[in-house]
Simulated assay, not measured.
Amino acid sequence: MVVPIILGIGVSVAVLTAKSTLAAYRKYIHLTPSMIAYLNNIKIDSPSTSLKSENLHLDYLKRHYRASGFEEKMTEREALLVMGIEGDDINHLNKDILKNRYRKLMVMNHPDRNGSQYLTQKINQAKDILDKSYLFRK
């Protein structure tokens, strides 16, 4: 009678370990060598070390997102990119996550704080599209 309980706990631990390992690996493969060095407090003698920590992600963004402007009509995919929602966040997307991302982006880009009015309009448009999206009708 105790054996099934022990086996169940063992299987649960193995599954949770595998799940967290895969999640960590998915995040790791997106890191550049300079990002890994920065996270480990290693100084690399290259031009990229003089950049601020925010600029370390520039290589990642250039590799994963196209260099063209916004599409004529915003799609859900583009709205997710504008709001910075990707990966596991999409699976767990709810109104609170969207609201928090929207507020964070609006604080950073608001025209009253020398932000771009165009980006503010795009952030508002992305929020409206995601509010009406099928992602919330799951």
Rank of each mutant, 00 (worst) to 15 (best):
Y25G: 01
H110S: 07
K132I: 07
N40P: 02
L7F: 01
M35A: 00
R101N: 08
G115E: 01
E54G: 00
I9S: 01
V15M: 15
E76Y: 05
Y65W: 06
L22S: 12
A18W: 14
D112V: 06
L7E: 05
I5F: 12
A23D: 15
L105K: 06
H110R: 01
E86F: 10
H64N: 15
Y38L: 12
E86D: 10
V2K: 06
K138Y: 06
Q117R: 11
N109P: 03
K73Y: 00
K19G: 15
H110T: 04
L16S: 13
T21C: 10
I90E: 09
R101A: 11
G115N: 00
N124H: 12
T32G: 04
Y28H: 01
Y60W: 04
D112G: 09
M106W: 02
A37W: 00
K132Y: 09
R103T: 13
N55C: 10
N109G: 02
S116E: 03
Y102S: 15
L93Q: 03
K132L: 11
S34R: 11
M83N: 06
T120Q: 06
V107L: 13
I5L: 15
M108S: 12
T32M: 08
K138V: 05
K62A: 14
F70L: 02
D131E: 10
G10S: 07
R66D: 10
L39I: 08
I129N: 06
S68V: 08
R77I: 13
N40A: 08
G69T: 01
Y60R: 05
V2I: 13
Y118D: 09
A126D: 13
N124F: 03
Y60A: 03
L130G: 00
P47E: 03
V11C: 13
Q117D: 10
P33W: 01
M1N: 08
K138S: 08
L56N: 12
L31G: 04
L7I: 12
R101V: 11
I129F: 09
H92F: 10
V3Y: 11
L61A: 08
R103S: 12
L61N: 09
D88V: 12
K127A: 11
I29G: 08
M106K: 05
Y118V: 12
L16A: 14
I85S: 15
L16K: 14
V2P: 07
R113Q: 09
G8P: 03
K138R: 14
S133N: 03
E72Y: 02
I42A: 07
A67I: 07
I9Q: 00
M74Y: 02
F70Y: 04
R101T: 05
H92V: 03
A67N: 07
L7C: 08
P111E: 03
K52F: 04
Y134K: 08
R26I: 09
G87S: 11
P4H: 00
S12R: 14
L58M: 14
H57N: 11
